[in-house]
Nucleic acid binder design. Sequence first.
DNA 1: GCCCGCGCTTGATCTCGATCAATGCGACGG
DNA 2: CCGTCGCATTGATCGAGATCAAGCGCGGGC
Lengths: 246, 246
Amino acid sequence: MTRHDPIQSCDSCPIRANAVCADCAPDEIAVLDRAKTYRTVPAGGRLAEAGEPLTYFSSIVSGCATMSRTLEDGRRQTVGLLLPSDYIGRPGRSTSAYDVEAVSEVTLCRFECATFERLLRETPHLATRLLTMTLDELDAARDWAVVLGRMTARERVAAFLVSLARRQARLSHQAEPTRAIALALPLSREAIADHLGLTIETTSRQFTALRKAGAIETPSTRLVQIPDFERLALEAGEDDDGGMIA
Amino acid sequence: MTRHDPIQSCDSCPIRANAVCADCAPDEIAVLDRAKTYRTVPAGGRLAEAGEPLTYFSSIVSGCATMSRTLEDGRRQTVGLLLPSDYIGRPGRSTSAYDVEAVSEVTLCRFECATFERLLRETPHLATRLLTMTLDELDAARDWAVVLGRMTARERVAAFLVSLARRQARLSHQAEPTRAIALALPLSREAIADHLGLTIETTSRQFTALRKAGAIETPSTRLVQIPDFERLALEAGEDDDGGMIA
DNA sequence: GCCCGCGCTTGATCTCGATCAATGCGACGG
DNA sequence: CCGTCGCATTGATCGAGATCAAGCGCGGGC
């Protein structure tokens, strides 16, 4: 399989963000362009409900959404943070396994499920692309299991910030963050807590602890300055080489 | 996309377990059969090392393996339990992200990476099949995140037993377990603890607690009798309909 | 300007699971 | 038959994070 470059977002043609890469033939792109529609959902809007039918396969063009499950007693776990180029939906399954909620205003590029599955059959390249994206998601989900299963509250918060910083850098075509960067948080403290498997109080305390330790600055609740990215990665349990230790 | 039946293992032709389903053309199967080789690894053997090159794409024919990451300070988290029909390897990436270890004697059906990626390009149906399998893995990984992030020790142990029982039933072509079943544990208490994000002591205590509550019986450490499957599913935080509550 | 409400932070206490420490038990070899 | 070794269980204590409960700060509406 061709190794694809990091996903290239293209505001004037957002579908490229999901299904198209440099190897695509122009006619494949044209077919996809004909089938796509757009939809914008305000912050707080529901994009899917666990167990409910899902009539579209969509990808995020702009904004941020969370994918979560809530237990009957109210415990909630976010299993995925969806940023531009991430997709919503599952070929081969007609209902959503999770609640998907817009945390900021979200614009989607959508295909009807049946249409998308036909395109998938008829366009081998699209299937390959989707496979690569799904494998990346799988790696991310497994990495997150290590965070949820074995890391302390402080490491979890640091790991969240590091992972978000890396994703935002990639989305804006930048290299791995080096030293000082600013990070805009799309999530409230509560949503972060749900993602980290912590309570909101513990999450808040760890932000404070990281601030007092000099690992971050918090000019406002939705903004985090990271004076030394490597230092923060260290707090997240990574070694100095930037990778997880084996 | 065609909705595939549960994977059909076939001892005399184990490759079917991974890449072949009813829709396959006979010549596709023949091509795969020519490329495959087998390898058997004893219990405790390493099948892959995090960060090391992976020269084969393999699938498990028999036995059980774990996929895990160990932090520098010794904390270990198992991110996947690999049973027959599961695959090891990642198209498009040449190194393993995790340690993979045989917990019982494991027989693999292997393809050289380059060969497999060529087959993937040339056989659209194989790509579709792999996509379906990967999406299933992704769902499982996300479901597990809910367990790791939000469930109590007792719920985790119950969830593990329930999920293992379901997988073993599926592998032997049986329906969802109904009432009484016996479950052979392929893992030691320590390996279970690593999968559940708990210590071995807590894991052992929860086995005892579930036994005292009448939810399981433990004739030996590697054998669990489940007198009432629904009852155990309840302990795992599922509602009576057998699904997770939204 | 003032009040109100919501999201965030901080404090006090409790609890579940981790840690430290024996003890039990079955398999295997002498 | 007994000693040993590795895994599992059980007990005692500790501590990180949950829970319960105030404050705090900021933005919007009257």
